[in-house]
Amino acid sequence: MSTVQQTGATDQATFRLFSIATTLLLHLSIFAALIAMWEGVIAAGLVNEFLLPRPSRIAAAIGKLYLFDRTIYWHFAITMYEAVAGFAIGAAVGIALAVSSALNDTFRRYVAPYAIVLNVTPGLALTPIVIAWFGFGWGSKIALAAIISFFPIFVNTLAGLTQSDADRLEMFRSLGASRFQIFWKLRIPDALPVALAGLKIGMTTALIGAVVAEFAQATEGVGVLMQRYSFSLDMAAAIATLLSMSLMGLILFSIMELVDDRVVFWRRDARMAVISRKRAAAFARENPGLQTNNKHNAGGRQ
């Protein structure tokens, strides 16, 4: 029986691999066609090459930035550092304020009007002021990233913490859970998915903050590079820098996705299965006598 199951599984795996391969091939060929069309349109002179450089020029600029001149790595690292540091500060303050507001109604009521005012102020408008406060160095970039990533994190965490399921709260109460238990075992797990969504938004926002602060006034960072290339009308290099920013965004976003996957594993079926198998195995190890249900799972892990 096991062999039959195994071949079935292999067939399924092969089929999945095949369908992934075809999709990938389709995407690649369409991408190639688009690039070729772009190249052709500019070669034919339909679009001013000055406004929109050819893909081949952009590829050459990418090669120059990453392989020959290697100018971008330093700027790349600086902007990443600014964004991540700003995000960390914004997240720490945002989560701390959200938790205190959730725990204390009075505190929330008095913080609310200021939070609303802060929310409708376009955060990026603070750029010149933040630069005047913190100087031209890294500090001002980190500060702006922190300020604008604070708000989505604060609001989402607070929303998560205050929107616990009423039935479950009732259940906790009737089982005599303490305030502390209700907070750690009910409100925190309930809040995590929403809070993580806020953190994800905050991460992208922090990157925007760092880049915009670099536009305004800086000597290093991807924003500076972008501005320098744009204003020297080296459009190919500017677009290459823009693509590097996309890469940064993708890196930061995938890290957050990964964290999301790990932390709120019960929202993802695949992760849920892995974690429950692991916990079952741990349970079986600790309680050798109680192997009736978990035997299969525990065996699978070893």
């Binding site: 501005q227 009308l233 459009m235 920013m245």
Partner: peptide, 25 residues
């Protein structure tokens, strides 16, 4: 389906970063 990867890249890009490019153009 075909547009999905482009949307993902666009979503991750700080869109305001295109500013200097547009101003130069």
């Amino acid at each position: 389906k075909l547009l999905k990867p482009y949307v993902i890249v666009l979503e991750a890009t700080p869109r305001i970063a295109i500013g200097p490019l547009i101003i130069a153009a």
